[in-house]
């Protein structure tokens, strides 16, 4: 289980978790709210040479250089053509702070651990490495994403 989640779990009594849900295309995802620092609008990123296609570049977050990961591209969907309508979720992953480019933030969910169902065994490696579980809510399916593998460095370490 990812570290961020377990940390969040400790802070909330009775196995209750708060998750932030967002959209990428038609799909809904969520991450633990404890990992989220802020949500901000899209600003043009400075491209980084020699970087994976899912790294959109870096932006200035109040003086810090923040890498932007296109979560759609990272999860294996078509990469996002970012515009003013897009949103950047600023997340803390370990010691690093990363911006996640998504289409829109939709909701804050409060769930108990038992609501989170294990990911069914599917062929996609990408799904396996990022999706920590599924939540069924009002007839929608929301995938819980673990953030620890989002940055390319961590992918190298895991390999």
């Amino acid at each position: 289980m990812n570290q961020v989640l377990s940390q969040g779990g400790q802070n909330q009594a009775g196995g209750m978790k708060e998750l932030i849900s967002f959209r990428i295309g038609a799909q809904e995802f969520c991450v633990d709210i404890m990992a989220i620092r802020e949500i901000r609008g899209w600003t043009a990123a400075t491209a980084l040479p020699q970087s994976p296609s899912f790294v959109k570049g870096v932006i200035n977050l109040r003086g810090a250089v923040l890498p932007i990961v296109d979560l759609a591209s990272r999860l294996g969907f078509e990469s996002t053509e970012a515009s003013d309508r897009n949103v950047i979720i600023v997340a803390q992953i370990g010691e690093q702070v990363v911006g996640l480019l998504v289409d829109a933030v939709s909701d804050i969910l409060t769930v108990t651990d038992d609501v989170i169902q294990p990911t069914p065994d599917v062929a996609s490696e990408t799904a396996k490495s990022f999706i920590r579980g599924l939540i069924a809510m009002d007839g929608r399916m929301i995938s819980l994403i673990g953030l620890d593998r989002v940055l390319p460095d961590m992918e190298l370490e895991a390999a």
């Binding site: 990123a45 400075t46 980084l48 040479p49 932006i59 810090a64 250089v65 690093q96 990363v98 940055l151």
Partner: peptide
């Protein structure tokens, strides 16, 4: 500004800075 702090080293890039237009 360090690139490594939140990302990693990039070949050909020593560091980053922020210019007057607020961009990196």
């Amino acid at each position: 500004k360090s690139l490594e702090a939140n990302y990693r080293q990039v070949p050909g890039v020593a560091a980053a800075t922020i210019l007057g237009d607020g961009r990196v």
